[in-house]
């Protein structure tokens, strides 16, 4: 608050910590609540399609919803099995 704190550096105000925490949790809860219920089905279908070409484990495909600014982004993460040889 004073020139002393300017010199010695100041801890972040607790209010700004509160705001950051709320931004994160509110974004997550909004995504969760408005969250489309099709994600599990999408994941299942993706597993089925990809399995036609590459053997994958259902757990190796992760489907998630992320919020970036005003956009919602569906993120699909596929870990291909390490076969030790080029596919």
């Amino acid at each position: 608050m004073s020139w002393l704190s300017l010199i010695f550096g100041e801890k972040k105000s607790t209010a700004s910590v509160a705001k950051e925490r709320l931004q994160l949790i509110i974004a997550r809860e909004r995504a969760g609540l408005a969250g489309p219920d099709f994600l599990p089905d999408l994941q299942k279908d993706l597993v089925a399609v990809i399995s036609k070409y590459v053997p994958v484990n259902p757990d190796d495909i992760k489907v998630g919803l992320e919020k970036q600014g005003n956009y919602e982004v569906i993120e699909v993460n596929i870990v291909l099995p390490d076969t030790g040889r080029p596919v």
């Binding site: 608050m1 105000s13 607790t14 209010a15 700004s16 509160a18 705001k19 709320l22 931004q23 509110i26």
Partner: peptide, 16 residues
């Protein structure tokens, strides 16, 4: 308290 950074400001709340 809002001025001193101890409390969320009303603009913070509105933004959230």
């Amino acid at each position: 308290r809002a001025h001193e950074g101890e409390m969320l400001t009303y603009t913070d709340i509105q933004e959230l």
